[in-house]
Amino acid sequence: MDWTEILIDAATASIGPVAAAYALAAIGLNLQFGYSGLLNFGQAGFMLVGGYGAAITVEHGGSFWLGILVGIAASVVLGLILGGPTLRLRADYLAIVTISAAEILRLIVRSGWAEPLTNGVFGIQGFANPFFDLNPLATAGRYGWGDFTFQGRQLWVMIVGWSLVGLATLLLWKLIASPWGRAIRAIREDEDAARALGKNVFGYKLQSLILGGALGGAAGMLLAVEQQNIVSDSFLPQLTFFLYVIVILGGAGTILGPIFGAIVFRFLFQFFDGFMAQSQAEGWYGDLLDATDAQQIKLVLVGAGLMALMVFRPQGAFGNREELLIDDN
């Protein structure tokens, strides 16, 4: 077993473009779930409209930069459509509606009916050339130390991706420290108390849903750009569940939690892949497991991990244990 290779692969994945995209989407989810108490189970849907908004625009003659605007606008509109009817209702309605909407969108995008626009199950490829044209690095060159290297093309996505993560974190930090941030935290604690004090609870929740959704849309675009390829089935409900693991792992309602969570999550994910691949190749399990079983075992562990985190360490790595112990009656 080559532990160095496994660890280097895992470390590479933990700061790679996908980790940046996950972190960005998780920052949005953290604003919604961690700070505002909104149960958005459809962040994958926001990512989908962001990515597809950009890809479809380019595919149909628009410029890449217009595509980015369309992608962000699409996720904002989705937030308005979903938030409007549900944010006045109990929290559980939002959960049901967001997961349903994300699935509706995925089903529509992959259907034959939408194929002229979305290319159905095959998705859209090669729409991000203007982005890569801006790359100042040598596309095929390798950058890094020893075995720990990235391709110039990949590194360019990482630089842009992590810069976006940094900007989003700064924005969130500024917002949460402002009276606006205090208001959404107060609403998370008790909506009625906020209403009785003259606060427009619905407006705050809608703003939080839309802002978090727009960050999700940007993350969806980042994923699509990195692959130069967008397919509907990248946006399965489990993508949202991964983001919950990330947010809770890092600590819901903490500024740096989503970044930390995304890095650790991607590290563990890749570490498990590498370990299983090598141990399988060495015949540790005989005929007991085949190659796809490893993927499924991983998802069982993700699910069990989400449960365990929520039950035993809901404050995550950065969360304040004391804050959580408060008996809220």
């Binding site: 935290r185 008790d190 009625d192 108390a193 008996d327």
Partner: peptide, 10 residues
């Protein structure tokens, strides 16, 4: 409110 609504984590 009859059941006090203090904002616990503020």
């Amino acid at each position: 409110f009859q059941l006090t609504k203090s904002l616990g984590r503020l």
